[in-house]
Structure formats: structure tokens, C-alpha cells
Design a binder for these strands. Structure first.
Length: 783
DNA sequence: TTCTAGCCCATTTTT
DNA sequence: TGGGCTAGAA
């Protein structure tokens, strides 16, 4: 029998309840830093080990590739560790390298390979590769399994073309961007064009619905789906085809959803359909060998502008759960113990978020000491603010050997704020990394190469075809393309069909005709090899045959060199993909690339200061955090100040920012700020007034403190000293709250001995009573 | 077909 | 302030 206790022993009682949950619904309300990933991974392990659930029957959904990858890695490690213990009686680390590798690959083959862990989009695209040909669109459109996935800019371009060229609308009134936004929103609510029209029966609503209908038609003509379709189409398919739904319902007996507060209506529908096999939730009772386990934190819901709706989380109890009050319910667990931040930081976060009305009551409990005060700095302007922040970083780094550049993060509301900080970081030669910004797969050269690959895999993809038909320049200009396209329209054929029709092409001017057939030959050559050629070989061949690399080399500029390097990087990514996925096809690589956010988000650099928006910081933690630009109009942003719901979201964003900090938190605001070229006076954010005054250390009249009051090292020394002094019986009394390094928070229940020779009995929730000598073990008091 | 001056605009963005 | 896009020139 497996020793289940081995990995459950480290859990606190709430975590344990979550991890040991077997069948039925469970909502895990997981505060920041409360060990939510741990609960998820341990539960999966527990399902497999204790309840003998077949890994094939487990579906775990995340929102980011990074979260999915982390979960996979942690589960793999958990199992490998267990194997090492049971086979060798040693921890994994203690085994020789080759044995570690052998165990890991054994675990992969027998367990993790069969788990479905991934983002909503990746999982849905996998389902669609099986079943999209069974989907019946009401407009009669159809897709095949080679479908392309259009990214945001492809989608945007398509909408723009429809608004301006097809429907001849005024693009001032119907800004393609906001039209695209409205369409995306409709899809995320699960609305068809007709539904959208019903929801908004005015001229604007009708017009947008019209664009939506045309847009969907165009997507189908390209055999393409946008990100929203990847979720919406499976939902529609499940609703119209009982067999298909029954298959997946039977397959996914245990469904886990991470970041549940970020789900939108369509994603919720997908989960609900899979769980209940299409039945209404209130009628669904058949929980035998079946569960839905969702983890989230309404206080960290910051993506409502992406149609995320945290009310879905708030409604879970009425929806799947028993609906009983918090104290009696068996379908909700709260993880409130925070293992990340000092008590001061947590108290500030708790006080701030109390000002929100729409939430589940929850208070983060500290398991660590009070820590330092939060430092509030008033800067003259954005330059002064940057100077302050960089000064602090330099001093802290110098005075604290345990801190390195990677220990610091500068968090801001808008990307535009990064400039001033970059300047000062550059001036002092401090390495830094801006998280976000232009993504690898959004680079022009990468989109070009992927355009070729998509055109090969899916020739109906006219958007990709047009992207590369004259890249590099091969003399197929606008007029030629226009003529080909209008021929396609007249004959009701795709552009590709026209391009490959020799008779039609021969009507073009001689030079153009030759260029076109040269291009189509290249594409056709590789299409023929698509099935039985490894993707890397196709990529290399296309790069050569198309002249893309040759063209970049010929340019010889620095910019072209950079592009070449990125193309090389993409090639490496294909190779790596082949290595990691046995029998990988080009189609698989393309799906992966369309859904990947970045290549290098794997490496977390220890040697660079991180700069990022508050949104990007969710899920991360840093020893020292600078929350900058905390001013009215900037944060909260002026667009959110009128509407109470938006203001609450800004407050949650602030809450996310504060809870990123482990040891020290600095908050700053400026008296005036240059925005878009003009200087504007600025006022401190209302969020500052909501923080407890006694936790804030403020700079007097904005003067720069030369040195930090107490660098971390000194604080640590001081704490150690305090604990040494605390050895007199008089210093302790029953009821004192303390924090122990390994056991966490606890309370003194007995004091033994007298004078200098004492020891304490301390009760740690979930771990029983321990006898501790405060002279030997460092204890931190909690006030 | 390609280049460039000037115009407009401006949160956040897991996929 | 600066990046992206368009209209007009080369």
C-alpha cells in the first residue's frame, strides 16, 4: 500500500481537506501565497495514489502555459520523489544522475503523460483536432482538423477589412478595435450574432452583429478559428452532439480548474457541460467517481476587461455546492494561511481589500513575523520617483548579501511608466528585465515564418497566404493580388485555388505569372511532404526555398541580423518541440506556437531587476517590491474611477501588488507627473488612505533618506537577539502567539521550568503540540 | 513599389 | 512623449 501520509504530513488542516477531497464539488478559496498550487498538485497525486484514479480521467485547466508547465513539473517531481523513496529508500537528489533520469521518465510514461493538464485554449484545441469535423455551424460553415489559429492581430486585421472594405462602414464610428472587442466579448458570453443583436437592438448593436456574422464567415473561409472560438465551438458542439459530449464527460471524471475567478461565461459553460453531461446543475446528482474542484481568489480577479467574471466563483456554492453558510459547508475550503509575506504587509493588504463589497470573507493570516514597516515615499515627479527607487535598490543590494538584483520588482499600472526607471537602471549599469512588451511570436519575422508554415498546413488560410506571397519581395504587387482576389471572389474559390490554377495564372503578365508559380511551387513541394517529414526539416526547407533567409542575409543591417537570430531561435524551438513530443507534426507545432505567449518565460532570471505591470505580476513573488505611481487617475486609472465595480477591480489590482512582496514593500507617488508630454499635478491615490497608518513609514517632507532605517540583515540580527533574550520565564506567558520556521503559527500552552532554564509547549494547528527550547530554536512573536 | 513626413492617439492583455 | 499608420512623393 502506498504511504499516503508521506506527502500529506506537510499540509495544514485546510490544505489537507482540499487535497484529500475525492468526489463531488469543492471550491477552494485560496488567498495569495496560501499554497494553492500545492493543493492542486498534491490532490492530483492523491487521486492517483490513494483512490487509484486513472490519470487519463483527470483534467486540470489553467490560464497560462506557465502555470500548466509548473503543475506538470511539480507532479512529476512528487511522483519521482515517491518512487525514489520506495525503490531506494533515499530522496531523489541522493540518487545518481542516470537513476534520477530513469525514474523521471518512468513517471512520465506511466502517469504524467496521460494527465490532461493545460490551458483552456490548448485543451480545447486538442479536443477540436479530434471532433471539429462533427461541428454543425448554423450558417452551414465548416472547418477541418488542419484549422489555423488566428491571433489577436490576425483577428483585428480581418475585422478591419470587413468594416472598411466589405461593409463600407465609417471606421471612425466603428473603430475596428472596439468592434473586435465587442465581438470577442459576445463570444465570451456565448452569444451568436443573432444573440448579440437581441442583446443590443440598436443601430450600433445591429451593425456590430453584422460584422460579427461576416467575420465568422471569413474565419470559416480561411479554415481558421480565433482564441475565443477555441472555447466557444466545443461548447456549441457539446450542446448539439450528445455522443461527443458523452465521450468527453466519461473521459474527464475529475476536473480541476485553477484561477477560477478568471473564467468567463463560455469557459464556465464548457466546464459545466463536461461535469454534468449537459444536465442542469441543480438536477445533477451523480457524483460517484466524479468531481469538480475549483481553486481561486475573488480578491485577485483583475481580468474583467477580458470578460472574466468572478461572480462565477462567488456563485459556485449555489451552483454546484451545498449552499450552506461558511461555517457549515462541506463544499468550500478556505486557505487563509499565508506563507509568503510578513505580517505588516498582509495586514495592509487585508485592510485595503476590506473596502470592497463584492467578495467572499477571507482574512490572510500571517505565519511569519511582523517584518518592517511599509515605506511610503512622496516624489516630486517621475524622475524623482525613479531616483528614489533605484537608490533604494542599490543600497539594499549592497547592504544585504542575501539579496541580488533578481530580488527586486518595480510594479506599475501602465507600461508607459517604465521609462524613467529604465533610465536610472541603465545609468548605474543595473541589469533589468521588462516583463511583457513585444512577445516573441508577435515579431514580424516570426509571424512571417509561421505564415509560411500555416499556408502549407492549411492552404485555405488566405490571411497567411497573403502575408507571405510577396515576402520577401518577389514581384507580386498589390495590383496582381487584387486581380487574383477578385477572380477568387467571382469564381467563389479560395485564393489558393486560384493561385494553383494554371490557366488563371497564365492570364497575368508574364513576369507576375512566373513569380506566382514560383511561389506556389515552393508551398506545394512542402505540402506534399507534410505528413512524413519532421517539422524542423520543413522549416529549414521553407526558409531556404522561399529565399527568406537569403533576403535577410543580403540586407546586412543590424536589424536584419537580429531578425535572422530570431528566425534561428524559432528553428531551435521547433527542434526542442520535436525532442519533447514524440512523433511531433508541423500541425502540432503550429498549434503550440499560436497558443504560446513567449519562448523564454521559462527562465526566471536571478540577476535582473524585474519591471512589469501589476497585471503581469500576478502569481509572482519578490523579496522587495516597489509599487510606484500610486496616484489618483493613474492608479486607480481615470477610466475606472466613475464606476464602482471598476474601482473595486483597481483595488484588487492594488491588493495583488501588495501581496507580491515577501520582506519589504515600498509605495511611491509623485506630486506631479509628465504624461503624454505635458506636466500634470498629481494627487495621492485613495488607496493610500485605506492603508493602516501605523504600518506606514513616511518620508518627511519628501526628503530622500540617505540610508534605509534598518536593512534586512540588521533586522534579522536584531530578531535573533530578541529571541535569545526571550529565555526568561517572565518573558513568556501562556497564550503568546509565535511563529516557528517549520511549524508555522502556534500558541504557547504551557511554560516549563523557571528563570533561565525554560522550555515551552506550543500548539501548532494541525501539527499538534511541540516542546521547544526558545534558547535553541528561533521563535518569532506575533503581536 | 517603396520611402517618409506628419498625423493621431494613448489602461490593463493569461490565450 | 513616442509609436503606428496613412497619404503622398520618388
Amino acid at each position: 500500500m502506498p504511504k499516503t501520509a508521506d506527502f500529506l504530513a506537510h499540509l495544514n488542516p485546510s490544505q489537507r481537506r482540499a487535497v484529500e477531497h475525492y468526489c463531488g464539488p469543492l471550491l477552494v478559496v485560496a488567498g495569495a501565497g496560501s499554497g494553492k498550487t500545492r493543493a492542486l498538485t498534491y490532490r492530483i497525486a492523491n487521486l492517483v495514489l490513494t483512490h487509484r484514479v486513472d490519470p487519463e480521467n483527470i483534467l486540470a485547466v489553467t490560464f497560462t502555459n506557465k502555470a500548466a508547465r509548473e503543475m506538470k513539473e511539480r507532479i512529476e517531481k512528487l511522483f519521482a520523489e515517491r518512487e525514489a523513496q520506495s525503490k531506494h529508500g533515499k530522496p531523489l537528489e541522493a540518487l545518481p544522475e542516470h537513476e534520477q533520469t530513469r525514474l523521471k521518465s518512468f513517471v512520465y510514461k506511466t502517469i504524467t503523460k496521460d494527465l490532461w493538464i493545460g490551458t483552456f485554449h490548448a485543451l480545447c484545441s486538442r479536443i477540436l483536432r479530434f471532433d471539429i469535423e462533427k461541428f454543425r455551424h448554423p450558417g452551414g460553415y465548416s472547418w477541418n482538423r488542419n484549422f489555423s489559429i488566428f491571433d489577436e492581430s490576425d483577428a483585428q486585421a480581418l475585422v478591419k477589412d470587413i468594416v472598411i472594405n466589405q461593409l463600407n462602414l465609417d471606421d471612425k464610428k466603428f473603430d475596428p478595435r472596439s468592434v473586435r472587442y465587442a465581438i470577442s466579448n459576445a463570444k465570451n458570453q456565448g452569444w451568436s450574432p443573432a444573440d448579440l443583436e437581441r442583446e443590443q437592438p440598436n443601430f450600433r448593436g445591429r451593425t456590430i452583429a453584422n460584422v460579427y456574422a461576416e467575420y465568422q464567415k471569413a474565419l470559416a473561409a480561411n479554415n481558421a478559428l480565433d482564441f475565443d472560438d477555441l472555447i466557444l465551438i466545443p461548447v456549441q458542439l457539446f450542446r448539439q452532439n450528445e455522443q461527443v459530449l458523452a465521450y468527453w464527460h466519461k473521459r474527464f471524471r475529475h476536473i480541476l480548474v485553477d484561477e477560477y475567478q478568471d473564467t468567463n461565461r463560455t469557459q464556465y459553460d464548457l466546464i459545466r457541460l463536461l461535469v454534468t453531461n449537459g444536465e442542469e446543475t441543480e438536477n445533477f446528482k451523480d457524483w460517484e467517481y466524479r468531481s469538480v474542484f475549483v481553486v481561486g481568489d475573488a480578491d485577485q480577479s483583475i481580468y474583467s476587461f477580458r470578460a472574466a467574471d468572478f461572480r462565477i466563483l462567488l456563485e459556485f456554492q449555489d451552483d454546484f455546492g451545498d449552499g450552506l453558510p461558511d461555517d457549515d459547508t462541506r463544499t468550500m475550503v478556505k486557505l487563509e494561511e499565508n506563507y509568503r509575506s510578513t505580517a505588516n504587509i498582509l495586514e495592509a493588504a487585508n485592510e485595503l481589500i476590506e473596502n470592497n463589497t463584492e467578495r467572499i470573507d477571507k482574512v490572510l493570516r500571517a505565519t511569519r513575523g511582523a517584518g518592517e514597516s511599509i515605506f511610503l515615499f512622496r516624489a516630486e515627479d517621475e524622475t524623482d520617483e525613479a531616483r528614489f527607487v533605484i537608490d533604494q535598490i542599490r543600497q539594499l543590494e549592497q547592504n544585504n548579501p542575501e539579496l541580488h538584483w533578481g530580488s527586486f520588482a518595480i510594479l506599475y499600472r501602465t507600461n508607459a511608466q517604465s521609462r524613467a526607471f529604465e533610465e536610472f537602471l541603465g545609468r548605474y549599469g543595473i541589469p533589468y528585465n521588462i516583463v511583457g512588451g513585444l512577445r516573441f511570436y508577435d515579431r514580424k519575422e516570426i509571424k512571417d515564418v509561421l505564415g509560411y508554415l500555416r499556408a502549407i498546413a492549411n492552404p485555405q488560410d488566405t490571411v497567411s497566404l497573403k502575408r507571405v506571397i510577396n515576402t520577401p519581395r518577389r514581384g507580386i504587387g498589390k495590383t496582381t493580388i487584387d486581380r487574383l482576389e477578385s477572380a477568387a471572389r467571382d469564381l467563389d474559390r479560395t485564393l489558393w485555388e486560384v493561385l494553383t490554377d494554371e490557366t488563371l495564372v497564365s492570364t497575368l503578365a508574364g513576369r507576375s505569372a512566373k513569380a506566382v508559380s514560383g511561389f506556389t511551387n515552393t508551398i506545394q513541394t512542402w505540402q506534399a511532404k507534410l505528413e512524413d517529414t519532421p517539422p524542423a526539416e520543413i522549416v529549414q526547407g521553407v526558409l531556404e526555398d522561399s529565399g527568406y533567409v537569403a533576403d535577410l542575409k543580403a540586407q546586412g543591417t543590424n536589424e536584419a541580423d537580429d531578425r535572422l537570430q530570431n528566425v534561428q531561435e524559432l528553428y531551435n524551438a521547433v527542434l526542442q518541440f520535436e525532442e519533447e513530443n514524440e512523433g511531433a507534426t508541423l500541425l502540432m507545432f503550429l498549434a503550440n506556437a499560436s497558443l504560446a505567449s513567449d519562448l523564454d518565460n521559462t527562465k526566471e532570471d536571478q540577476r535582473q531587476v524585474s519591471l512589469m505591470t501589476l497585471h503581469s505580476s500576478k502569481g509572482l513573488e519578490f523579496p522587495v517590491v516597489f509599487l510606484v505611481g500610486v496616484e489618483q487617475g493613474l492608479f486607480p486609472n481615470f477610466r475606472s474611477m466613475e464606476d464602482p465595480a471598476s474601482l473595486e477591480e483597481e483595488r484588487r489590482l492594488c491588493y495583488v501588488g501588495i501581496t507580491r512582496a515577501k520582506e519589504r514593500l515600498f509605495i511611491s507617488y509623485a506630486r506631479e507627473r509628465r504624461l503624454y508630454g505635458t506636466r500634470e499635478p498629481a494627487a495621492p491615490s485613495l488607496f493610500l488612505a485605506e492603508l493602516p497608518k501605523e504600518l506606514l513609514l513616511t518620508s518627511a517632507v519628501g526628503a530622500l533618506p540617505k540610508k534605509l532605517a534598518t536593512p534586512i540583515r540588521e533586522v534579522k540580527a536584531k530578531r535573533a537577539q530578541e529571541s535569545l533574550l526571550n529565555t526568561h520565564a517572565d518573558d513568556w506567558k501562556v497564550g503568546d502567539r509565535v511563529v516557528h520556521k517549520a511549524y508555522g503559527a502556534g500558541q504557547v500552552t504551557h511554560i516549563f521550568g523557571a528563570g533561565n532554564k525554560i522550555c515551552l509547549a506550543i500548539k501548532f494547528p494541525g501539527q499538534g503540540q511541540k516542546i521547544i527550547d526558545p534558547k535553541i530554536t528561533t521563535l518569532q512573536r506575533v503581536i
